[in-house]
Design a protein around this nucleic acid. Structure first.
Lengths: 136, 136
DNA sequence: GCCTCTATGTGTAACTTACACATAGCGGCG
DNA sequence: CGCCGCTATGTGTAAGTTACACATAGAGGC
């Protein structure tokens, strides 16, 4: 579900799976553990979320750093290629909280809109959509 | 919170508030009522969600139509400018359900990661991030 | 006629993303 | 030793998306 590039056969699906959700999830992971990109990409894959491009993960982390929401240093203590270890900053923690609130508000709207509703009895007007009067 | 264009004063905030969430919310609204763009934009504003650009709403609706998730016709039954009335297609309904599942999975991950956790006791390793062995 | 509100849409620069590819350290193995 | 594969990070680029500003147009008020 949800492919991006036009195959010139399927009608394009208009969902970009990642973006806000990627950034939010990365910040959430970093709230619990300090980690480096490769590790975070693996955790995302194991979490049952739709697949992420590792290049996008790396770029997103750098962007979060530019924004001051995470900070990083090179970890050369282990053998193998150096790792860029990230940790959440105080600003990142505050930002994450705010964003989880926003997501919760979306969820409320979705729940209220979807709850116990039979789409076959759908109508055009409705409580939230009066004819043309009574709207401010 | 969350401005986009670089003011050359604030560090850029890396969140695009809309996208997936806009499309999901529009489809959810259309599951309940048929509606036109101007009306949907108003409902979004009244729902307490972050502000939407109306141009983006209109373009998103056309994109959803190209993808076959909604359909539309010109409604000239009322006075004033003609309205393009949208309704959810069967494909749109199925797609919406799938997407709400994906959002639920993100929520599970966020909840599990955030629950009852004191960020001050944060560590580097952790159950999901072993040193270098035992990882496949 | 002119203004405002309703209603839809487009032009464009800035930005984001997926895919492919590049680089580099280290360990095994023939 | 040379080669391969895994770990780890990153970039080039085409295609797509967004916010902002602006354009168009009907209807009613004055």
């Amino acid at each position: 579900m949800a492919k991006r590039r036009d195959d010139a056969e399927q009608p394009e699906t208009p969902f970009r799976l990642h973006g806000d959700l990627l950034t939010t999830t990365l910040l959430a992971f970093l709230r619990k553990w300090n980690a480096y990109g490769y590790q975070l990409a693996q955790q995302l894959a194991e979490a049952g979320l739709p697949a992420f491009d590792s290049g996008t993960v790396y770029r997103t982390l750098r962007q979060l750093e530019r924004a001051g929401l995470v900070s990083s240093f090179w970890d050369t203590s282990e053998s193998g290629p150096a790792r860029r270890m990230y940790s959440l900053t105080r600003a990142g923690d505050i930002f994450l909280s705010g964003w989880i609130d926003v997501l919760g508000r979306y969820q409320d709207v979705l729940r209220k809109t979807m709850d116990g509703f039979d789409p076959d009895t759908k109508k055009t007007g409705g409580a939230a959509a009066p004819k043309r009067t009574a709207r401010k």
